[in-house]
């Protein structure tokens, strides 16, 4: 159980590292949003799952709290990133090399 918990912790830390790297290295806003939120969602998820596996042995009372934190992150992070992306689209901060624009096809005003 401890080894499983360490594996999840390392995966989480790796995703945090990649997310932080992506925020600096990605070329435009949408890619940065994706790197900043998708990677950190999975990173936080894995780290909390790792803590959950680690707490099975002697901290059973942590488990419901950790599950609530997971639900919070899994809902709040994607919703926040989608809202930021929509706001970016509306502020016309769109990269030039955008190929597919579904919102424009649906007749959404910018």
């Amino acid at each position: 159980m401890t080894i499983l918990s360490y594996i999840f912790l390392i995966i989480g830390a790796l995703f945090f590292l990649l997310g932080g790297l992506g925020v600096f290295r990605m070329p435009d806003t949408f890619n940065r949003i994706q790197a900043g939120t998708k990677a950190t969602t999975l990173g936080a998820f894995s780290i909390i799952v790792g803590v959950l596996f680690g707490s099975v042995e002697n901290h059973l009372d942590w488990i419901p709290k950790l599950i609530i934190i997971i639900v919070f992150i899994v809902i709040s992070n994607p919703v926040g990133s989608s809202t930021i992306a929509k706001a970016t689209y509306r502020s016309k901060n769109i990269p030039d090399n955008l190929i597919q624009d579904d919102l424009k096809e649906r007749g959404e005003k910018q």
Binding site: I68, V71, F72, I75, V79, T83, A87
Partner: peptide
């Protein structure tokens, strides 16, 4: 200034429950 989309509305309503419980 804007109309919040469906996802933001529903997501914040779910988050409300978690925030109140916490």
């Amino acid at each position: 200034n804007f109309k919040p989309n469906f996802m933001l509305r529903v997501g914040s309503n779910i988050l409300l429950a978690i925030i109140l419980v916490t």
